[in-house]
Simulated scan of single mutants.
Amino acid sequence: MTTLRLGTRRSGLATTQSRWVADRLTELGHTVELVEITTDGDVSGELLTAIGGTGVFASAIRHALREGRIDLAVHSLKDLPTAPEPDLVVAAVPVREDSRDVLVARDGLTLGELPSGSVVGTGSPRRTAQLAALGLGIEIRPIRGNVDTRIGLVTSGALDAVVLARAGLTRLGRLDDVTEVLDPIQVLPAPGQGALAIECRADRADVIAAVTALDDADSRACVVAERSLLARLEAGCTAPVGALAEVVEGDEALELSLRAFAGSEDGRVELRRSLVGPYSEPEALGARLAEILLEDGAADLEAAPTPASDHPEHVS
């Protein structure tokens, strides 16, 4: 095969993720060239909901794939819309990083140690809803920016703490800034958080064959369940959603355990439900749990009129 052209956004995190994939492919004997793609989300300072939401980062890269300017792309999986793209395929989901959220707070404080009235920054309606539901008396302020910018809001004293994805800090070598890893019992991550998606054109059998070696079956099963739940909920409610699937030992075989959250951003309503199903049927499991949430009231929940982004890793 000739050189694989790997499209990447220009952000530090996106480039780091793409280089990690490029290194794995190089180890398998392939030659890889990184091709920088600038997206609307990288150059706009507006909230993501104002410029197109989740898909704003994926659309430019997908356009380059379709035009044949690149052969494959690496996305943060939670950045990908759940709607299928018939001419594109996620050829691999590599081993997933820790999907949990983390707190970066002044003076090494944990969430429970923050005094009442402390100001916590996040760009995520999902985090806002779950933090508010904890009833800690903190003020939650919407923010946007790269990892350095967000952590800088704490070190400068502008905020008492920020909440970020652990996976992004791991990839950037910034785990020393973390003051607490948040238990999913308190804050469930976004569907697909911590996972990468390697995407290419469906008609490129050569690229698919090269990339499939990086696929991790457990990671793929978990994110398929989470995204199936999200896809069904997006059709029936606009509430912030969190989800986490895990591979567990069943009585006779491996199973998937899926936990999910849907709630109001003011924290007054929170629905938390869980379900266990066959490892081989992740999509069906996600859809079933989504139906339970909808039946239990998720369909009546509405997002805030102008929510911020649920993607702290967008720019770095």
Rank of each mutant, 00 (worst) to 15 (best):
T3G: 05
L4G: 03
L6K: 09
G7W: 06
T8A: 15
T8G: 11
R10F: 05
S11L: 04
G12F: 07
Q17W: 12
Q17H: 13
R19N: 12
R19F: 09
A22W: 10
G29T: 06
H30V: 06
H30G: 04
L34R: 04
I37K: 05
I37D: 09
T38S: 12
T38Y: 06
T39M: 01
T39N: 04
L48N: 11
L48R: 09
I51R: 05
I51Y: 08
G52C: 04
V56Q: 03
S59M: 02
A60Q: 06
A60M: 00
I61A: 09
R62D: 10
H63D: 12
I70W: 08
D71S: 02
H75F: 15
L77W: 07
L80A: 00
T82F: 01
T82E: 11
P84Q: 04
E85G: 04
P86M: 11
P86Y: 10
D87K: 03
D87Q: 11
D87E: 14
L88Y: 08
L88I: 13
V89E: 02
V89A: 11
V90Q: 13
P94V: 03
D101R: 05
V102M: 01
V104K: 00
A105D: 01
D107K: 06
G108M: 02
G112A: 12
V119S: 06
G123E: 05
T128N: 00
A129T: 04
A133W: 13
L136G: 05
G145H: 02
T149V: 13
G152F: 05
L153T: 11
S156K: 07
G157I: 07
A158Q: 13
G168H: 08
T170K: 05
R174M: 14
V178Q: 11
Q186G: 01
V187M: 07
P189Y: 11
L196V: 02
E199K: 01
A202W: 10
I208H: 04
A209H: 09
A210Y: 01
L214C: 07
D216M: 00
A217E: 10
C222M: 13
C222N: 03
A225I: 05
E226I: 05
R227F: 06
L230S: 11
C237T: 15
V241K: 00
G242F: 08
G242C: 09
L244P: 06
E246S: 13
E249H: 13
G250W: 11
L254V: 09
E255P: 03
E255W: 06
L256D: 07
L275R: 15
P278R: 14
P278Y: 09
S280D: 15
A287F: 06
E291D: 14
E295C: 11
E295I: 15
A298Y: 11
E302Y: 14
A303D: 10
A303L: 12
P312T: 03
